[in-house]
Amino acid sequence: MLPCADCAGIETVLYLYPDSTYVERRTYLDQPKEGNNDQVSSGRWAQVSANLVRLTRRSAAGPTDYRMRPRALQQLDLDGQEITGDLAERYVLAQVGNL
Rank of each mutant, 00 (worst) to 15 (best):
L14F: 00
A72V: 06
Q47H: 07
W45V: 06
N51Q: 10
Y91R: 01
N36T: 14
R25S: 11
L93R: 04
D77Y: 10
G9P: 04
N36I: 14
L16M: 10
V13N: 10
L2I: 06
R69W: 08
Q95P: 00
D77F: 09
S41E: 05
T21I: 06
L87A: 14
L73S: 00
Q31W: 07
G35H: 07
A88F: 01
I83T: 08
R26S: 03
D30C: 02
G62F: 01
M1Y: 06
G35L: 10
L52R: 15
G80D: 08
D6I: 03
E82F: 02
T21F: 02
A50P: 00
G85N: 11
Q95H: 09
E89F: 00
Q74E: 15
A46S: 15
D65Q: 12
Y66F: 11
A5M: 07
L87Q: 12
C7P: 09
L78Q: 15
C7L: 07
R71D: 11
K33E: 15
P3F: 08
D77I: 02
C4H: 07
P3E: 05
L78H: 14
S20R: 08
A46R: 15
A61G: 01
A72M: 09
Q81W: 03
R90N: 05
L93E: 09
N98G: 10
A60K: 07
R69A: 07
Q74M: 12
L16I: 05
Q95K: 14
V40M: 05
W45C: 00
Q31K: 15
E34G: 06
T56L: 02
V96W: 06
A72C: 07
P18G: 10
Y66C: 07
V48K: 12
A46W: 02
I83S: 05
S41G: 09
L99R: 13
P3C: 04
L73I: 04
C7H: 09
S41A: 11
Y91F: 15
V13T: 15
T64L: 10
S59R: 13
L99N: 11
D30G: 06
Q95G: 04
Y22N: 09
L78M: 14
S49C: 05
L2P: 04
G9I: 10
Y66Q: 02
Y17I: 03
W45N: 04
L2A: 09
G9L: 10
I10F: 02
P70A: 03
L76P: 03
L73P: 01
C4T: 11
V13L: 06
Q47P: 02
Q39G: 11
G62K: 08
S41L: 03
R44I: 01
S42H: 11
R25E: 13
N98L: 12
T84G: 12
A60S: 13
Y28W: 12
A94N: 11
P32K: 06
E82A: 15
P63M: 11
D19Q: 11
Y28D: 01
T21H: 12
A8N: 13
N36P: 10
L78V: 13
D79V: 04
R54P: 00
C4D: 15
G43T: 04
T21P: 03
D30Q: 15
R90E: 02
N51T: 06
A94V: 10
L93M: 03
